[in-house]
Design a protein around this nucleic acid. Structure first.
Length: 98
DNA sequence: ACTATGACTAACT
DNA sequence: AAGTTAGCCATAG
């Protein structure tokens, strides 16, 4: 499988995360054929500004919103769909998908 | 071709 | 419990 295929797989999986739930870079990587968590992060970073993909529902394995330029915007989007992020940017365990 | 850098993680201290 | 380290590999310069 080529790298472009992996990218497509990553985006397909992210698109399937239900509203109000989240998952991790590592879990997404594990659902593909050979992608690494870093590649998933890279894929999210490449997304254009106005995309429809629910990229904000992807968090780190430590259950925290990853540290990046749009972290603030990500938390805002999460709050919009009812996901409460605590003062340490952490997500409640029961909201994880699958 | 080579180095540096990251929206990562699991394993150790 | 909180840092550090070693792997990771696509991108960018």
């Amino acid at each position: 499988m080529s790298r472009p295929d992996l990218l497509e797989q990553i985006y397909t999986i992210v698109d399937q995360i239900p509203a109000g739930r989240v998952t991790t870079y590592g879990r997404i990587a594990a659902m593909t054929e050979g992608a690494t968590p870093r590649m998933v992060g890279t894929a999210m970073r490449k997304l254009p500004e106005g995309n429809t993909l629910p990229w904000h529902r992807v968090v780190s394995a430590t259950r925290r919103v990853a540290d990046h330029g749009g972290a603030q915007r990500q938390m805002e989007k999460l709050r919009e769909e009812g996901i409460v992020v605590d003062a340490h940017r952490r997500i409640p365990t029961h909201l994880f998908w699958p």
